[in-house]
Amino acid sequence: MHTRTALLATLLLFAACKKEDNNVKKDTYEDGVSTVIYDLAGDTEASVGEGADGKVMRPFKPFFFRFNGKQQSWDSSATNRQSNSWDIAFTDVYNALVYPNSGTDGRNPGYGGAGKGLIVMVDKPYASVTQAPTEAEMKTNNLGFVGWDGYPQPYNDGWYFYSLQTHLAIAIRNRTFVLLTAEGKFAKLELINVYKGNPPAVTDLHWPAPYFTFRYFVQEDGSRNLKTP
């Protein structure tokens, strides 16, 4: 009898502990002001290794993104690259190396154009970044691009890193980048995930990528105010 009571008690205890939804904690990114982009497909046809036929597959095609109007463009012509029609470019392996549109930086896809882009890291949660640094500060701390954190040099701040356990890419949570758009407006950007569906952790080596989840806010009035709810 005692055993039975004990079992019942244990059962109830565990029923109370049960968790729902396979431990998936979904964050909400919508704050009513920022633009949230879900699962924007990068060059999903490319791969860095060998294809089924044994040939080396082609490298990733870069794409360009304009904040205003959420415009993705695959036009890699010099005319488009050197224009102000884009604010950030997704380049290289997994399209994960992100550049602002700068006409003056020799490494930048927009080199030679009119882009005024700069990018700096503010290592804080997105909502708590309320004011952009001054343009002078941004010029001093300009990262040029953001990709693999600490690579190729420890001072190359980035938005993701590769796991040593799985070799999968892991985005660094609550890291924000402040940038100047092509036209020189202050904006903030959070790059959230490269895997489809924005899972909290990737549990499959073959999880489809690159599908970008990111959010941004552009201060249209030209001020440094980046306050979002």
Partner: peptide
């Protein structure tokens, strides 16, 4: 071995 997806 070269990983066909990640390329390492």
């Amino acid at each position: 071995f070269t990983n066909p997806q990640a390329g390492y």
